[in-house]
Design a protein around this nucleic acid. Structure first.
Lengths: 337, 337
DNA sequence: GTGAAAGCGCTAACAA
DNA sequence: TTGTTAGCGCTTTCAC
């Protein structure tokens, strides 16, 4: 293994000059710097991170905790975060908690001490998670806790747009298929829906419960949606919408003819399925990038002493209209097959 | 920050006893161990990883390099790998290279020195990747290089099964839509196809080129497939199959009536789309787990001196029959609309 | 602008 | 069984 000593010897300087030339080139005379850089290159010197971390007390790496990497939503956020971290020359430790609060706390406990901060994406048990962090820099994504920096999507605005769209089509009774009970996004969506419907006294919202944020959740919700008498439904995410459509079809109902469906997230499955889903779109890539930026700023502010205000950027949520929404038809076709 | 010294003071022992009691409890007397453990717990002591790594020369963490986390295939492998690493008490650094050979080499160069080994999944430039590793422990997934440990799926067996299935349905001319030119899996699939068709002199294979392993790749391939005169097609992966079906439909053709389609991977999109895809299934979760196990064994063998044979476990590939394959119909419906 | 020297927190010989 | 001690490779004062 090549160390600073080897480089120093070859360059004919001391180890401190090597360290300086590599970390803060502007503090070293031009010719000296060149010699050091040349020697480092020739020897293929790679600083030992463990040593640097031990000495400097910070690692240049961050953590990202997500509930499920196989969920295209989190995969997209992770990609954005990773890309941004790479641009900043930082590392990113991605951990998948399998939607399990215990694993979540455990993962954070393991991650926090060896990183400079953690992005916590849609935590399933935020209180425990924050506890496990023991006060280290953190940024929440799609979750809010007083005084904790966060980055979020404008769920309320999104819900308003979805409801406006459905109302314009003529729907007056709209069901909402909720996600996990501990999901903060879900709460925001319900709140946004309530606000929006309050603005139109001719639209009624029916909440049909909480379901797993996967295809099976949608399948499980379908019969309740049918029974609710709604002519349109908004789901917690696209996967749930897909499951819903699937079960609806099995019951002999057609989307959008018998029921209009609006998904959430605009993950790539939304455009793949039949019919392509009308859905709410967030730039997930940007969400991940914003989270890393915010985290880096938070961690730097912490170190620099200059407190960064825990502001809370909200990314726009747009409605993407595809083929799963249409005007309602009189209920001739509803009921028994 | 709580250090070994604090724990030692509270427990009334020396720092080495603390270290030993925590790392190798069996080498410490019962009562002493209890006192140390109690003190550590009371103080919420967390060993500083950087220090341990620096001293011990190994980190207890591994790396996983994948081309694209948003691809459900790699997401599934990553989940399996992560789960297994966690069971083993090890960390896993996941890096997404965005299908870019430059980023791949760069990521590996950054990852290798700070981990005990790396799992390289479907490398896009294996030679450069292996070079960047500088001889550190590695396991390849779905790629083979002489003398390098690897874990793979039995692509040849899979292709044979797919072809048998299509032949049994009555197809005699089968197209193959290839993936990236540098993809080793793609080479294996072509080889498997060639072998299998050699065994049946009544089946002909038409290779229609190399395409991006995404939906767009399938869309781009569709017209070539139609022109090839094949009655069935096997695609590099499910995403390509989805794009193919999409474009076929736009051209007024129906799957499976006018063309049978077989995907690869059985990613979850395969069962979501219309029609659900007949596809080749690999247990990706298990593939990820096997890779980590193999890597840990390789790294341990390296340390222990006892050379582990670079054997190459191959996971079974099974055919999952859904609705995208059917017997061919006489070509009444082919040609101009 | 450069060098000498003091550790960061931990582990692993070696002694006792 | 337990303690003493010598670093792992690096960064960072503090002199010069």
């Amino acid at each position: 293994m090549v160390t600073v000593h080897d480089v120093a010897r070859v360059a004919g300087v001391s180890i401190s000059t090597v360290s300086r030339a590599l970390a803060t080139p502007e503090k070293v005379a031009g010719p000296t710097r060149d010699r050091v850089e040349r020697a480092a290159r020739d020897l293929d010197y790679r600083p030992n991170r463990a040593a640097a971390v031990l000495r400097a007390g910070r690692s240049g790496a961050y953590g990202l905790v997500v509930p499920d990497l196989a969920n295209p939503y989190f995969a997209a956020v992770a990609k954005g975060a990773q890309a941004r971290a790479r641009e900043l020359g930082a590392g990113l430790f991605i951990v998948d908690t399998d939607e399990d609060p215990d694993l979540e706390a455990e993962a954070i406990g393991a991650l926090a001490p060896q990183t400079d901060g953690v992005v916590l994406c849609s935590p399933r048990a935020a209180d425990r998670a924050l506890g496990a962090l023991a006060g280290r820099p953190v940024v929440l994504v799609n979750h809010a806790v007083d005084g904790v920096p966060a980055v979020e999507a404008d769920h309320r605005g999104g819900m308003r747009r979805a409801l406006e769209h459905l109302r314009a089509l003529g729907h007056r009774r709209v069901a909402y298929v909720g996600g996990p009970e501990r999901s903060w996004s879900d709460h925001r969506r319900r709140a946004g829906l309530a606000d929006a419907s309050a603005a139109y006294d001719d639209v009624e919202i029916v909440e049909v419960g909480s379901f797993r944020p996967q295809v099976e959740g949608g399948q499980a919700a379908a019969d309740l949606v049918i029974a609710s008498g709604a002519t349109a439904v908004i789901t917690f995410n696209d996967l749930v919408a897909v499951g819903l459509v699937d079960r609806l079809r099995a019951r002999g109902l057609d989307v959008p003819r018998n029921l209009s469906v609006v998904g959430c997230d605009d993950s790539y499955v939304a455009s793949l399925v039949t019919p392509p889903l009308t859905t709410l779109s967030v730039d997930l890539h940007r969400l991940g990038r914003a989270a890393v930026d915010h985290l880096v700023a938070t961690a730097a502010g912490r170190r620099g002493g200059e407190g960064v205000a825990p502001d809370r950027p909200a990314l726009d949520v747009e409605l993407v209209v595809r083929s799963s929404t249409a005007p309602p038809v009189p209920d001739l076709t509803r009921g028994a097959p």
